[in-house]
Design a protein around this nucleic acid. Structure first.
Lengths: 356, 356
DNA sequence: TGGTCATGATAAATCGATTGTTCACACATA
DNA sequence: TATGTGTGAACAATCGATTTATCATGACCA
């Protein structure tokens, strides 16, 4: 009986199915290290062109692909970058993701996705990601009080780029890539001012959120330049969601009551909030833009499809993603602040804003 | 002069900064293999509980994290899963992504993102991902004619789960995870029928798209059960985008002209199309739902925030992501078809549909 | 023509965790 | 008491690419 051989007919192929560098080298009749150097285009190798060609041809013919594990073990780099944002389900960061992914792919890097909350709560995930050298670098969305210390820890252990955070805390921690929030909100506010609005309100994200503070700051500055002011009574701070926009406008409407002294225009902290505001306006019988103009920071794909189409100012999210990846890949990122000014914030004047 | 030592004061820490398994073993006064087995909870190890505790304590105290490269090299698994969809910028797949990521994270796996087009066009990316064993498994969105052969190739080289594709081609290729398209579209159609609509039209994605065919099929079946039919003249097939919905409704309006014989309700192939239709309706002076009811397949977060809020039927995208990951992680996936029926498609009757 | 230097290819070590194999010890039975 | 069996831990090999150190060869100069 030949039980063994019949039980495992193809045991030989079982073990290693891939083509090793050694196989390529053997096929090209060179040593393994030389093959490695040729394939990695080591400039110190001055082998005959014919030899190089033989190696490349053999690699191509055998379909050689370097073993990731071995390379990672030796070189201590994984070819992976982490991208950690606050809410993966939010459409707000799709452009950031897209930009980062494209730039990463162009350099044969891959992106792994993380969630900020997970990094905060799941100690295991934190360890694997940060201490385990699972990724070569991390792009993390910043701007959250209790989280800042954690980011500092991470940045200490791993090349890190912070995205979309206030410049203050990042100065010595990690490089920052951010949009020109001031220019964007100023542009939006000036658009409303130019339309003749003088009393302008605001519904935005958490009051303490640094991003919110930057945006409010921009609005204030632009209003001040025109001799106007931002009144607390015209301001609501909740979250960055559509629900918050909805609740926010209802809150303002309650404050207004039947009084005729109220803002003629409102700024939304982001386009999600703007969407919620449009819905609330419809429910309340407020006609936009006749009774109220609405303009939102942070354009998204949806803005132009709304009825009425939402006036926004676009932030260079895609470029931020690209830049963040480039920072991580080029040189060891020094702590610096990069405000993306190309392209500059762009005003999309649509149907929700009109002359007062 | 002690130039050397002053030039590199902390050279000792330079080389290896991580804690190795050997360090843990030394600290716990056991051998490296034993430490490995204890940390991996090998059931064959019956070391004294005290010994085990010492190993675990040492690992904890030193902050040990296994080196990914070494583990990958030895075990031939990367702890990564690939997720490849058609358009990462599309908000349609956020729930799928979220579900897959959550389930992966629960098993200490990470997700790397890919783009279908890239996999088609970039030979390099294909090689790295598929042949390079960079990931342990792949979730890929299927349902595209010329791409199906490629998926078969991939599935041959790598554990693969196809998401959201027609059952036909996947039978022998890889397991499939899909929503119950038939039930969903039937539910939507019956909702319109129940409201008294008898002539119902459709604007959907590419005619040849298998997903589209399933959805159209469902509509046809439900209409047939009620003694109605789907007329070609009431049907437009473009893409899955909001722009397509916009263009589609304008096309239908042109066909209708001044004739009063036209559908009283339209079904949108997905909610993006529905959004575009709402905008076109507003432009054309068609009041929804008074003049025309609109209902869309595939609920997304935006539907309820539109004005008027879009009636939809939700697909279990999140559960599909979870299931796909679970399939890849549990056992080697056999070719099978899993239609997610829990939760079942859920009708969200909102403001865009009304009695005829 | 012999010696030295430059150049590039090869040999051997390395990265760190895992796993098949061997070994030692203890207990039980003859 | 001696041998056999079983159990659990240590030894050593392995995964595959990279890189340092070593060696051989050729050229060029004296």
């Amino acid at each position: 009986m030949q039980g063994e051989s019949s039980q495992e007919p193809n045991r030989a192929r079982q073990r290693r199915d891939g083509v090793r560098l050694a196989d390529v080298a053997a096929a090209a009749q060179v040593s393994t290290p030389l093959a490695s150097r040729v394939l990695n285009a080591d400039p110190n190798v001055r082998a005959a062109d014919e030899t190089k060609a033989r190696v490349l041809e053999a690699a191509e013919r055998l379909g050689y692909v370097p073993n990731i594990g071995a390379r990672t073990l030796r070189q201590r780099r994984t070819g992976l970058l982490g991208l950690v944002v606050h809410n993966l389900s939010s459409p707000i960061y799709l452009d950031l993701l897209q930009g980062a992914r494209t730039e990463a792919a162009a350099n044969n890097y891959f992106l792994v996705l993380g969630d900020v909350d997970e990094l905060l709560t799941d100690e295991e995930a934190y360890r694997i990601l940060v201490n385990g050298k699972r990724i070569d670098g991390l792009i993390v969305q910043g701007g959250h009080g209790e989280f800042d210390q954690r980011i500092a820890d991470i940045a200490h252990a791993l090349p890190t780029v912070i995205v979309n955070a206030p410049p203050t805390l990042t100065e010595t921690v990690a490089p920052l890539v951010a949009p020109d929030e001031g220019a964007a909100t100023r542009m939006l506010t000036e658009h409303l001012l130019a339309l003749g609005h003088t009393r302008i309100g605001l519904i935005s994200g958490p009051r303490d959120s640094p991003t919110n503070q930057l945006r409010v700051e921009g609005v204030r500055a632009a209003l001040a330049s025109a001799g106007c002011a931002l009144h607390d009574v015209d301001t609501v701070h909740l979250t960055w969601s559509a629900e918050a926009g909805h609740a926010g406008l209802r809150e303002l409407a309650t404050r207004w009551g039947n009084s005729s002294t109220r803002p003629t225009a409102l700024i939304a902290g982001n386009s999600l909030i703007g969407i919620g505001m449009l819905r609330a306006a419809a429910e309340l019988g407020i006609e936009v833009p006749r009774d109220l103009s609405i303009a939102a920071v942070h354009d998204t794909w949806i803005s132009e499809h709304l009825v009425p189409a939402l006036t926004t100012v676009s932030l260079p999210l895609r470029e931020m993603g690209e830049t963040a990846v480039r920072l991580l890949l080029t040189d060891r990122p020094e702590a610096q602040q990069i405000i993306i000014s190309d392209p500059p914030p762009l005003l999309h004047a649509r149907a929700t804003t009109a002359t007062n």
